[in-house]
Design a binder for these strands. Structure first.
Length: 434
RNA sequence: GGAGGGAUGCCAGAGCGGACGAAUGGAACGGUCUUGAAAACCGUCGUGGGCUUGCUCACCGUGGGUUCGAAUCCCACUCCCUCCGCCA
């Protein structure tokens, strides 16, 4: 949620900032109006409430003094005020509901650093990396043996069985097998080990309460993108960001503990409603995938460094895996609801000849912590909302695709990077089954 | 799934219709004393909202209800503990 105090003080700044991402100024104005109205009604209800409390005390006094008549009189007055207060309270509640509805639905203010733009076409490419770049090598040339899409490679080598996945859960639920399954497991373990120096490893529940989903901003906005288990009031998490952001929900952290850094490997579920066709073949877009998330609660001062650290770690993994990738600075119009600034990492996958998003490293400022009510106590005793930052490092289904395409050999086998050897029982070659 | 017990401040724990935002103890912080420390003693010690910055409102697991008045009574729900059942 955005800061209502800021909205009151500088409505023009808020209107302009949200305008950069396409929010109608009328909606902002409505929130301003409703906020004023809400406070007016609240004052009225509270004034009545204070009077009732005072009268009730006097009733008690009269009773103790055995002045029954006076007690009855005061009770009668208070009872009448009570009815008035109930009406005033109901009015205030109704306006509060509307206020909260708009407030929850408004996205975060984009950072002034985020580039202007309306959609993904306006994102700014920051840089590219490929193996050998530091030694002066040009953008890699990919041979014909690498121009085979991963769904074909996977079928040839018996490591990806999309038909079996579809049979079990429907399309876009991939099933990995044999060396392919082991590769997914290896990637998750590899990443967790790399982050263990600074990030506490967490294995959170895969399902979350509505309240938990609201804290990150996934609800109510993206309700159609989520899988719901209605009978139990649960949602399948779309990313470990959801549970990690709520780990300290409603708590006040000591400043000395910050930054609190955590990492988690979880399945991620996305309904991808409306997505179909060319963009969704194979592993390009799936309903369930494994991902390692990096997350930090920090002070506003620590946030830039925390954001940079997550970005560096995500890039570091890609470099270790030798994959070609680029960084995109998301424009204001393409930012996720809750984010103020996001850098996307896209890996180049030669078989499908596409850049695939494998990480999104975001700084949310206090937008999520205001929803989740996560604060910290400064040395001087005052409290303030923490900032949250997070990013994938990395989303494995698409990495899996990029790996088998990039490292496909002319003989059809796949020779994976040596850095994965410890996680693959030493076997980095995947060959066609006999 | 069944039976019973519980949920109060940083922690422990009292309060079970009337000045209760809440006793008491511990922890923490500040001070006195001390060469220093400990002990002792004194003080501070929840969060948020509103507005006329001094007042006011809300919060005792959550949501309803009863009442002039609710931490306290009633209803529902959630979570925790004990026992039974089932089970990876």
């Amino acid at each position: 949620m955005i800061d209502l105090v800021q909205l009151r003080k500088e409505p023009d700044v808020v209107r302009a900032a949200l305008g950069r991402r396409g929010v109608s100024p009328a909606l902002v104005d409505e929130l301003v109006t409703i906020d004023v109205e809400h406070r007016r009604l609240l004052q009225e209800a509270e004034r009545l409430r204070a009077e009732i409390k005072s009268l009730s005390r006097q009733v008690g006094d009269a009773r103790r003094a055995h002045d029954t008549q006076r007690a009855e009189e005061l009770s009668a007055v208070s009872r009448e005020l009570g009815e008035e207060e109930a009406r005033a309270g109901a009015d205030a509640d109704a306006v509060a509901d509307r206020l909260r509805e708009i407030w929850l639905s408004l996205p975060n203010l984009p950072s002034p650093d985020a580039p202007d733009g309306v959609d993904e076409h306006d994102n700014v490419e920051v840089r590219r990396w490929w193996r050998g770049l530091e030694d002066g090598a040009g953008f890699p040339e990919f041979g014909p043996h690498q121009r085979v899409p991963h769904w074909d490679v996977g079928r040839e080598l018996g490591i990806l069985d999309l038909e079996a996945g579809a049979k079990l859960a429907g399309s876009m639920f991939p099933l990995f097998r044999g060396a392919g399954s082991r590769l997914i497991r290896a990637l998750g373990a590899f990443a967790l080990d790399r982050h263990a120096d600074a990030y506490e490893e967490i294995r959170p529940p895969t399902f979350a309460l509505t309240e938990t989903m609201q804290s990150t901003g996934h609800l109510p906005k993206s309700v159609d993108d989520m899988y719901a288990i209605e009978r139990d009031g649960l949602w399948a998490i779309p990313t470990a960001e959801v549970p990690l952001t709520s780990m300290h929900r409603g708590e006040i952290l000591e400043e000395s503990r910050l930054p609190v850094r955590m990492t988690a490997l979880t399945p991620c579920f996305r309904r991808e409603a409306g997505a179909a066709g060319r963009d969704t073949r194979g592993l390009l877009r799936v309903h369930e995938f494994d991902k390692v998330e990096l997350f930090a609660y920090c002070t506003p001062d620590q946030a830039p460094a925390a954001h940079a650290d997550i970005l560096e770690r995500a890039e570091g993994l890609l470099r270790e895996l030798g994959l070609t990738y680029r960084l995109l600075d998301l424009c204001a119009g393409d930012l996720g609801t809750s984010s103020a600034r996001t850098i996307d990492l896209e890996v180049y996958s030669p078989g499908v000849d596409r850049w695939l998003e494998v990480s999104s490293v975001s700084w949310f400022r206090d937008y999520q912590s205001r929803r989740a009510n996560v604060r910290y106590r400064r040395a001087d005793g005052t409290t303030a909302l923490v900032h949250t930052v997070n990013g994938s490092a990395l989303a494995w289904a698409r990495i899996w695709a990029a790996l088998v395409e990039t490292y496909r050999q002319p003989d059809g086998s796949v020779e994976l990077p040596a850095v994965l050897a410890p996680y693959l029982g030493g076997r980095t070659t995947i060959t066609r089954p006999a």
